[in-house]
Design a protein around this nucleic acid. Sequence first.
DNA 1: TTTAGCACTCCTCATCCCCGAGTGCTAAAC
DNA 2: GTTTAGCACTCGGGGATGAGGAGTGCTAAA
Lengths: 356, 356
Amino acid sequence: MELTPRKKEILKVVIENYISTAEPVGSKAIASQLSTKVSSATIRNELADLVEMGYLEQPHTSAGRIPSPKGYRLYVNELMEQRALSLQETEEINKALQMKMQELDGVISKAGQMAAALVNYPAYAMASGTPGLTVHRYDLLSVDESSFIAVVMTEDSRVKSRLLRSETGVDADQLTALAALLNAQFTGIDETEMNRRLMDLSSKTPGPLFMTLSLTIEYTCSVIEGGERNKVYTTGANNILKLPEFRDADKAHELMSFMVDNTENLPVPPAGTNMEILIGPENVNEALRDTSVVVASYDIGDNMRGLIGVVGPTRMDYATVAARLSYFAEGLTKMFGKQDPKQDPMLPGPKEEQKT
Amino acid sequence: MELTPRKKEILKVVIENYISTAEPVGSKAIASQLSTKVSSATIRNELADLVEMGYLEQPHTSAGRIPSPKGYRLYVNELMEQRALSLQETEEINKALQMKMQELDGVISKAGQMAAALVNYPAYAMASGTPGLTVHRYDLLSVDESSFIAVVMTEDSRVKSRLLRSETGVDADQLTALAALLNAQFTGIDETEMNRRLMDLSSKTPGPLFMTLSLTIEYTCSVIEGGERNKVYTTGANNILKLPEFRDADKAHELMSFMVDNTENLPVPPAGTNMEILIGPENVNEALRDTSVVVASYDIGDNMRGLIGVVGPTRMDYATVAARLSYFAEGLTKMFGKQDPKQDPMLPGPKEEQKT
DNA sequence: TTTAGCACTCCTCATCCCCGAGTGCTAAAC
DNA sequence: GTTTAGCACTCGGGGATGAGGAGTGCTAAA
């Protein structure tokens, strides 16, 4: 059977009605919204065909039709009109983008929060890429006979520091020597290599100094391994409680628990694309098979990508969500990109405001 | 009318039954659980008195009794037995306490998460105290002709750093001079005073250098003002969906939204106490009047206090929650306190593990 | 003061039935 | 061949009804 233009139009009307009302759509209602005027009986014939073809479903014999995942997929791929954002919407998003995002630590979770607020669905945010971050430079600052400050600057120009305490004591000269050693031998390498070299040095270095060295390396490892990357932030989970499909507390609880616990299993868009929409069963995760996910990515610096995803019912307003999310992600990319290339892309220009 | 011991015992039985079942408790059920054997009719007489005195309520004439807030209050103050934690429970909490809490940034939210997991209710966490944090020491490290690293150590020994970029360029000598100036004139003072002194210097300092100076001060202000203090973290909100009183999605949504949005209005225990229990209408916040809140505090360093609060139905298991929360808070206090006093209390001992 | 007995209340749950929206099918019209 | 009107049918939603049962209050006796 063929998918005539009229069938497509009917499908579109059904989906858009269902998106806004969450209730099965009947033939009469469709007839009144169609561009060409036909009777409801004609629509019914078409609807029967669409059900047969798998684009629509019927909750029971005498109910209207609701879209199937296949129907949503066609809608998203072909029928959905690129929704133009209203001036008000763009302004709202721009305002959100102007939020001071000072440190990378914080940007990602903030982005998730704003995405959730933007679309009124739960959102998650994470960073991906740069699995092997390395250290670019070390500084050790003497504080007193037993403490010093370790300052570590990573390859991607983030700076982290911590007060460390050596039980054996360290003086300023030792720290200078140690910093030289670190900068010479412990830059540009990954964690395993660091530990290997540390082992090598264990015999050649005086005990107290080695203590201090390994302390610093230990801290360094925590910096390059930890941080915001790998972490997933979820927000706006409360939004799902407003949706009729989650009025059942058990369902809502299931999804929420999944989102906060199984953070590793959330969908990630394929490399090279900026946005992906996963509809219902297209999700690999069992817990998401009744929901849809829209994920957008933005660029942070050279080798790192931020991800913002939105989770909602399959009846999600794809056009609006996709439009807002992609505009927002583009804004984020621009925000990171527009910085002076010599400057660390993760840091704001000097003019930026400071208040939190 | 007098509150006889038997009345108290009955009240206690009613409350404990209601806590575990969430259903009105009848006279027969009470009779079977009382220490002295009396008939249900006797209980009914007593119940009628307790209702009259305001300790119990009756949903409708022929239902059992449920506790009123006044009843819960009496229970919490007098009747509730200090619940001893089982070995398993203490072990569980101890395990949670061993989680690596490396930086103050993170400890507070982590504490909230663990509290939520511990009691299966939504929890919030925040820090209070030290409104006027000041800077103890500055270091400026030259990176290239236009960038440098600012390292700021606060009075409470936290160290923060950031790569800054001066449009006008700075060399190492200038940075040294600037650092000396900062350490001489910008330590131990609060934000307003900082800005005042900065103003004073604006005319006396060469333009480019002043740019760099104000940039650094700007960053410093963001450090001492921002950070984890003042922020409130909420977690475990999904827990309420398991409770029968929140099966109604609207109620659950109302509470959840309140907890994520109105974070400033969450209850704080009065100074000088370690724990407070607020029952139903005792909460000032409108949105919390049907819920109870248990808040415990722990000490972080000298002039700072961490807060963990748990929100649940008035039918909350006060004995267990209070016991776990206070044990947990004590553990946190100890964890911060046991550190070498010379060492920054917010940082782990050198032996601590590093993996995240 | 306590207890047994009893009538009464009121919620819960299951059943039933009506109503209406919507369908599928058929036969006529275009 | 396609569209339309007509009509019988289906099925869920919602209100009415009634039995069952847990629990109460009251009274009178122990």
